[in-house]
């Protein structure tokens, strides 16, 4: 029986063999692996890139106090970016499933239409949800736009839902029963997170504080973006902290999600706040492309 961590390690080893950098999780709260700079910024421009990493993804509104066997405030995604997408990308993906012991010739595997769009990131793509015996185990997306920009090179993004996949392989009904290793279960490792963060997000988060924090990060990001208009010489341009500005964008995105779970965003505000976060993301993307171009020209 493969444990949760066996599956993670096998998938990482497989993608490493396909030439991927194996990255570690990004250290800001994000709603999905897509939002990490390793995806959001790397897919911009023409440089090839291959990377795989596990990303804890926080979705405050999805928490269920640990009471629902399939729904989580924080779940773990394995995010794979192949830029550009190779011609045999679907086949490469299917082989990764065989790598973790799934004999696809005896299963029902379908690729069903599922397009992806993130208004806050100004990003969208087309693709599928991969259905294995009726269970969605992976999101497969060909990016078309990111940060409001048409992409020069089309990457494939594979997002494995690690809990679902493992529950499937281990044949357990609840994610909390997943064997993380031979000794401990997923519940041992994560249940407290689910209970406490559900309480925080739905009941305890101090709305004024979170709003204040949102505005602080927003203005810091905006200040940095404004500063990039006139970054100075080539060295200053290269060292200009757009990555730090992007951190601020991600903070805003997460705080927005928290406010929403807390029921603190009225319907009229919602669209406006999404637009504010989107403006930051689009601003960072445009500046980043410029910074990369300048750096490529200088070298």
């Amino acid at each position: 029986m493969l444990t949760f961590q066996d599956i993670v390690m096998r998938l990482k080893a497989y993608w490493a063999r396909q030439g991927c950098i194996i990255q570690e999780p990004f250290d800001c709260e994000v709603g999905a692996g897509t939002m990490c700079p390793e995806t959001f910024l790397r897919v911009l421009g023409t440089d090839p890139y291959r990377v795989a990493y596990v990303q804890p993804s926080r979705r405050p509104a999805d928490g269920r106090y640990g009471e629902n066997p399939n729904r989580l405030y924080k779940h773990l995604q394995l995010q794979v970016i192949l830029k550009p997408a190779p011609d045999d990308v679907v086949e490469l993906y299917l082989r990764s499933l065989e790598e973790i012991g799934i004999d696809l010739s005896t299963h029902d595997c379908k690729l069903e239409e599922d397009n992806w769009e993130s208004p806050t990131l100004g990003a969208w793509g087309v693709g599928w949800q991969v259905m294995l015996d009726g269970l969605e185990i992976t999101q497969f997306t060909y990016f078309q736009q990111c940060g409001g920009l048409d992409l020069d090179v089309v990457p494939a993004e594979l997002t494995y839902g690690l809990e679902r996949l493992t529950a499937f392989i281990q044949d357990v009904e609840s994610v909390y029963d997943i064997r993380w290793n031979d000794r401990w279960t997923y519940g041992h490792v994560r249940l407290a997170d689910e209970e406490q963060y559900s309480t925080y997000n739905f009941e305890e988060a101090d709305v004024d504080f979170v709003w204040k924090e949102f505005r602080l990060h927003e203005s810091e990001c905006q200040r940095l973006l404004d500063g990039y208009r006139d970054p100075g010489g080539p060295l200053e341009r290269r060292r200009y902290p757009l990555l730090a500005a992007f951190d601020q964008t991600l903070k805003c995105s997460h705080l927005f999600n928290t406010l929403q779970a807390r029921g603190a965003i009225s319907v009229t505000e919602r669209a406006q706040v999404i637009q504010r976060v989107r403006n930051l993301a689009v601003g960072v993307a445009a500046a980043w492309v410029d910074q990369q171009r300048a750096a490529a020209e200088a070298s």
Partner: peptide, 27 residues
């Protein structure tokens, strides 16, 4: 259910679909 496969001799496909449906109904 209709699978995109050569059949389900071992019953694993059926078991998989049943599990998903059970989770959905539970929800």
């Amino acid at each position: 259910a209709v699978a995109n496969s050569g059949g389900d001799e071992s019953g694993v496909i059926r078991a998989g679909h049943e599990r998903v449906l059970r989770a959905r109904f539970n929800d």
